[in-house]
Design a binder for these strands. Structure first.
Length: 399
RNA sequence: GGUGAGAUAGUCAAGUGGCCAACGACGGCAGACUGUAAAUCUGCUCCCUAUGGGUUCAGAGGUUCGACUCCUCUUCUCACCA
């Protein structure tokens, strides 16, 4: 039981620091029922979560299964500085009201994965504001510049003469101090957070908290292309707020290889269960597509409920497996008679009439499921279902 | 501050007076095959009712019958020196 818990916790992690401590905590839980705390920090800027972010949340949920209380920290104070990790854009200031709104939005998304009963949502301004200038100065004495510059992106920026603001040095210190204030046993973060996470250990020692947090880092989730990290700007993401049909379809569109990665990092299935599925696929008793469907189902159900997942799957079958038209699609009213290429453009399923013509030539355009061969075709009065390729549909009402 | 190199379509990157709407690669879209996979193969990939027309190669002028290609200025980027 204990071994299984440990394996589940280690599953998919990029790196664990102080694994022994985690073992001890688990042991104390299984033998004496002692709980422990796991901290994870989040930015209060607009919580536009995608599945990449949920990797961390899943890990937190796993911890909850094995006796952890989650300290879900919203970095309202530190947001004023801006984490220098990655981009060094100056941040816009968030009003307290906006932070409150974002925090609420976080909760609705996050509690689809986490157990609210075992989660404390905390704001670091509540103790960092009380630190005062004396406390702040004291904090700065615990670390030195040379070591600060060891941090990867500081080092790069220093070498390349890109400016580093002193306040940015405060960020890791304050994040580390959060662990002091919360007396966290474990902290979770992405691999890019390593330096900041380790700072927690350092400060807990310096402030004699009586323990040093273990650190567990999760890898970056690959996006739909399977190569680059999942991110909104790259357009290869599955948003937590995506509608069920999209979510289901997107999961199903990942490659088989990537599917296992998603299983590892996103599924609530146990390692044993996943292992069994893998065996089934290699032996040919399970069809990979069925397996992927079950994953898509699981993920869709998590964010939209069982019913929506079933509906999404049915809709998907209808459109793709049986190549019928979708139940719902955008409706456009057009003045007729209208040239087919123009109509496709007006319905937003083609970017230009030139592109529309090319697609007609290739046989990619269908009206009411019938292939269009005449690129001069005029649409008369009536209602049509226009289609380009396999997934772009529109309903056109020609007046 | 000095010197040199460069800026080409979504990205990278050829082209150094007409054969250029511009090689190629990646990406994207479509077709075949499939499991809406992946892999593979094929086609397309500035706009326009179009065997033609229009607008493009950082920006503005100029030379020329003709410029992405030559000249001038401007803006920006990079490298080396200080």
């Amino acid at each position: 039981m204990m071994q299984e818990a440990l394996q589940e916790i280690q599953r998919g992690t990029a790196e664990i620091i102080d694994n022994e401590r985690i073992e001890k905590l688990l042991k104390a839980y299984f033998e004496e029922g002692k709980t422990y705390t796991v901290k994870a920090g989040f930015d209060p800027t607009a919580p536009d979560l995608h599945l990449g972010h949920t990797v961390l949340l899943h890990k937190l949920a796993t911890f909850q299964k094995y006796g952890a209380r989650i300290q879900f920290l919203i970095g309202d104070f530190t947001a004023q500085i801006g984490d220098p990790t990655g981009k060094s854009e100056t941040r816009k200031q968030l009003s307290p009201e906006q932070i409150q709104i974002n925090a609420e939005s976080y909760k609705t998304q996050v509690f689809k994965i986490l157990d609210p009963e075992k989660t404390d949502v905390v704001f670091n301004a509540s103790w960092l504001n009380d630190l005062g200038s004396v406390g702040m100065l004291e904090l700065t004495t615990t670390f030195n510049v040379a070591r600060m510059l060891e941090r990867d992106d500081f080092e790069k920026r220093y070498k390349s003469q890109t400016p580093i603001s002193i306040s940015e040095f405060m960020y890791p210190l304050l994040q580390g101090y959060d662990s002091v204030a919360l007396k966290s046993d474990i902290e979770l973060g992405g691999t890019d957070q390593k330096f900041n996470l380790l700072m927690g250990r350092h400060l807990q020692r310096t402030y004699e908290v009586g323990k040093e947090q273990a650190v567990l880092m999760m890898p970056i989730l690959e996006g739909l292309d399977g190569v680059q990290k999942m991110s909104k700007s790259l357009g290869n993401y599955i948003g937590v707020e995506d509608v069920p049909n999209d979510m289901f379809g997107k999961v199903l569109s990942v490659s088989d290889e990537l599917m296992w990665r998603y299983f590892e990092l996103l599924s609530a299935k146990t390692l044993k269960e996943i292992e069994a599925i893998k065996t089934g696929v290699t032996e040919g008793t399970l069809h990979p597509k069925k397996v992927k469907e079950s994953l898509a189902h699981e993920i869709t159900a998590r964010f939209h409920g069982e019913e929506a997942a079933v509906a999404a799957q049915a809709e998907f079958d209808k459109v793709h497996a049986k190549s019928q038209i979708p139940t719902e699609m955008d409706i456009f009213e057009l003045d007729g008679p209208i040239w087919i290429a123009k109509a496709l453009q007006e319905c937003n399923i083609e970017p230009s009439t030139s592109q529309a013509r090319r697609d007609i030539k290739q046989g990619a355009v269908k009206i009411d499921q019938v292939k269009v061969s005449d690129e001069q075709l005029q649409l008369e009065r009536g209602e049509y279902v226009l289609q380009v390729g396999k997934r772009k549909f529109a309903r056109a009402k020609v007046k």
